Measured scan of single mutants.
Amino acid sequence: MADEEKLPPGWEKRMSRSSGRVYYFNHITNASQWERPSGN
């Protein structure tokens, strides 16, 4: 997916099972956040 290609290394887009909202998860640091991480 083009959107995921633009995410910084380690980040992936996921869907919250409880709320149905999109969030972002970093599998390197195990961090998660609602806001899209910047690629800069």
Rank of each mutant, 00 (worst) to 15 (best):
R14F: 03
S16M: 07
S18C: 06
M15A: 08
W34G: 08
G20Y: 03
T29P: 01
E5V: 08
P9Y: 04
S16F: 08
Y24P: 01
W34K: 14
S38R: 13
P8K: 03
T29Y: 07
G39C: 11
I28V: 15
I28T: 13
S32T: 13
K13I: 09
L7V: 03
S18V: 10
E4Y: 08
I28N: 06
S38Q: 12
Y23P: 01
K6M: 11
G39R: 09
W11D: 03
P8I: 04
T29C: 05
R14W: 00
E12D: 05
I28P: 05
P37F: 00
D3C: 01
H27A: 14
E12K: 02
Q33A: 08
S16C: 12
Y23N: 00
S19R: 07
F25T: 04
S38W: 11
G20A: 06
R36I: 07
A2W: 06
E5W: 07
D3I: 05
H27M: 13
E4N: 07
P9H: 11
D3M: 10
P37L: 00
S18F: 07
G20K: 13
R36Q: 09
M15T: 14
N30Y: 05
S32V: 09
M15G: 04
A31S: 13
G10S: 07
G39F: 03
R14V: 04
E4C: 15
N40P: 10
A31M: 12
A31D: 04
P8S: 02
S32I: 04
R36H: 12
N40V: 15
K6D: 08
Y24H: 00
Y24C: 01
R21V: 08
A2S: 12
E5A: 09
N26E: 01
S32L: 06
K6N: 06
G39L: 10
E35M: 07
N26R: 00
E4P: 09
D3Y: 08
N26V: 00
W34Q: 12
M15F: 11
W11L: 02
A2H: 04
H27L: 11
E12L: 06
M15R: 11
M1Y: 15
E35P: 04
S19T: 12
V22C: 12
A31P: 00
W11T: 01
S38H: 03
A2Y: 04
E5D: 10
W11S: 01
Q33V: 06
K13N: 03
M1W: 05
Q33G: 03
I28S: 14
P9I: 06
N40H: 13
E5C: 09
H27R: 15
S19A: 11
M15L: 13
N30V: 01
Q33C: 15
L7T: 00
D3G: 10
P8C: 02
R36G: 03
P8Y: 02
A31R: 11
N30I: 00
E12M: 06
W34V: 13
K6C: 10
G39T: 15
H27D: 03
K13A: 10
R21A: 12
S38I: 05
S32G: 06
S18P: 13
P8E: 05
K13D: 02
R21M: 05
G10Q: 11
S19H: 06
F25L: 05
W11R: 00
G10L: 02
W34T: 14
M15Q: 12
W34C: 13
E4V: 08
V22T: 12
S16I: 08
Q33P: 00
A31C: 12
H27T: 15
E5T: 10
W11P: 01
R21W: 06
M1E: 09
E12C: 07
G20I: 02
R14K: 10
G10P: 13
W34M: 08
Q33F: 02
R17E: 15
S19K: 09
T29R: 05
E35T: 13
M15C: 11
A31W: 09
G20W: 01
Q33T: 15
I28Y: 03
I28L: 12
L7I: 02
Y24T: 00
M1V: 08
S19P: 04
Q33K: 04
E35H: 12
P9S: 09
R14L: 04
R36A: 13
A2V: 12
E35N: 06
P8Q: 04
H27W: 05
D3P: 15
S32E: 10
S18A: 04
G20E: 08
G39A: 15
W11H: 01
R21T: 06
F25M: 02
F25P: 02
S18D: 15
S16E: 13
P37S: 00
G10M: 02
S16A: 08
P8M: 07
D3A: 13
F25W: 06
S16T: 14
A2Q: 10
K13Q: 15
Y23T: 05
L7S: 01
Q33I: 04
P8A: 04
R17V: 11
P9W: 02
K6Q: 09
F25S: 02
K6I: 10
S19N: 14
T29N: 05
F25V: 08
Q33S: 12
Y24E: 03
P37D: 01
M1N: 12
G20D: 07
E12W: 02
K6Y: 08
P8D: 02
A2G: 11
Y23G: 03
E12N: 04
